[in-house]
Design a protein around this nucleic acid. Structure first.
Lengths: 252, 252
DNA sequence: CTTTCAATTATGTATATACATATCTAAGCA
DNA sequence: TGCTTAGATATGTATATACATAATTGAAAG
């Protein structure tokens, strides 16, 4: 199975009392690996060392390490110990980057603009986008990202205020909602849908296209600890953007 | 790891003495799920029932079921039991792009049609698609895939005959080039580009669309041991297809 | 008839223990 | 020196046990 880093359950805080001990051990080790603190080849502590460190039994440590091994993050060798593996390229495959980075990578000046901001109760259409379990207040945002003088893409976003109440007080004048959210909420799961669509009247105006012009639409739903956080729909003119995914088959 | 079915270690035979017991239980259950014997929603036996069936302790059964749950194949509910989940592993979408499967998953009859087949020397445009290192003969194919009576997508493919000489003698009347190549050449790396485009005159005719209609284009370059094997461009009507990628807390 | 609450049930986690297995180290011997 | 062999060691799997937790059922109370 293409096992990946993202598959490991993410907990907001490693020390959270609500997470189980083995999950906390797993998160701690995974964090040190993905942060680069423990580089590929690094020998992580032996089971009996972790057993002491966390004051638990070997079985508990073993459960965490076995799962990290299945996830491909570490490799376990009898008698030798457990070692951080080279990243298996699979996790970053469809990682979709911050738009500022994308634009600046093209050598163009980036600019962001908030078009509208509306706080309202969730309706049926909103539940369809964010997920069934959303009922309370949410924030609907529309913005536009520029590459130089030309519109690069539009952003249509819903934020679940039950999950991120701080968003209600944020102005989003300087910082785009995407980067702001990343700083506020650690995401634990994401789903991307990539498709083509014809520009409707609103999008056509926003992007300076003819109505019906082909566009690339990238939708992303994000959860944090099982709770829907945000749904965002980026719409790009067809010629402005492509998604690239590169990988080699990884064995786990 | 976009955790997926393929992420679970596969054993040739479930009864193999070399596989551990929990792995055998895991394989047995997984096989029944992927074969369709146990459909989504089916309640798989309780832990205590499996415990009896395999004559082992609950911990062993629990290990197998927990991993299946992390892999997203089953969902476990306290007091209620464990249930087969709807398939949602989308990591395979990018990895295995067999159109027949996609179409049949929609419940529609699949049909494939070869439009043209041409053997020629590589030109500059071909090198652009396949990679710089290609100089000899190649095979250019165009085909169309149907879902029911409607065209589902077009396929425009180049095959490097230096890497796959057997392709020169293949008719491609029954088997589409994609599945045929997978059987011939083990691929070691692939690169995907996903974008939107307006249908040009040829595509419009092939797909029965108006010229300029929005389409989703998926291009894939494949290498085997550093050598370019094939480049393929699938073009879908915008409403026919979307690429989905889900990174979930589901790993094994 | 509805609400409340306790019992039941299946899963979730953690423990101590045991033995198997792969692999490295070092001692012993040719 | 080269080979074999016997520990030592870390992981791999399996067990019995224990208690926690979520969800559902059903009985009692209003």
């Amino acid at each position: 199975m293409p096992d990946s880093i993202a598959d490991l359950v993410e907990a907001p805080e490693s020390g959270d009392a609500s997470t189980s001990l083995y999950q906390r051990i797993l998160n701690d080790i995974r964090d040190r690996i993905v942060s680069g603190e423990w580089e590929p080849g690094y020998r992580i502590p032996f089971e009996h060392e972790l057993t002491e460190e966390y004051g638990c039994s070997r079985m508990t440590v073993n459960k965490a390490l076995s799962q990290l091994a299945k996830a491909g993050l570490i490799e376990r060798r009898r008698r030798s110990g457990s070692f951080v593996r080279r990243p298996q390229s699979q996790a970053a495959v469809l990682e979709i980057h911050d738009i500022r980075i994308e634009v600046e990578a093209l050598g163009l000046p980036y600019r962001y603009e908030l078009i509208s901001q509306l706080k309202r109760r969730a309706g049926a259409a909103d539940r369809d986008r964010l997920g069934a379990g959303v009922s309370g207040q949410l924030l609907a945002l529309k913005c536009r990202h520029y590459a130089g003088a030309r519109p690069f893409c539009t952003e249509d976003r819903l934020i679940n205020l039950a999950a991120v109440p701080e968003a209600a007080d944020e102005e989003f004048l300087e910082t785009a909602p995407g980067p702001w959210l990343i700083g506020q909420v650690p995401w634990s799961a994401a789903e991307h849908v990539i498709r083509a669509a014809a520009a409707d009247a609103e999008i056509a105006v926003d992007l300076g296209l003819a109505a019906g012009a082909p566009c690339l639409v990238i939708e992303r739903r994000t959860w944090s600890a099982e709770r829907p956080v945000t749904h965002v729909r980026f719409t790009y003119p067809a010629n402005a953007h492509a998604v690239v995914a590169r990988f080699t088959p990884s064995d786990s």
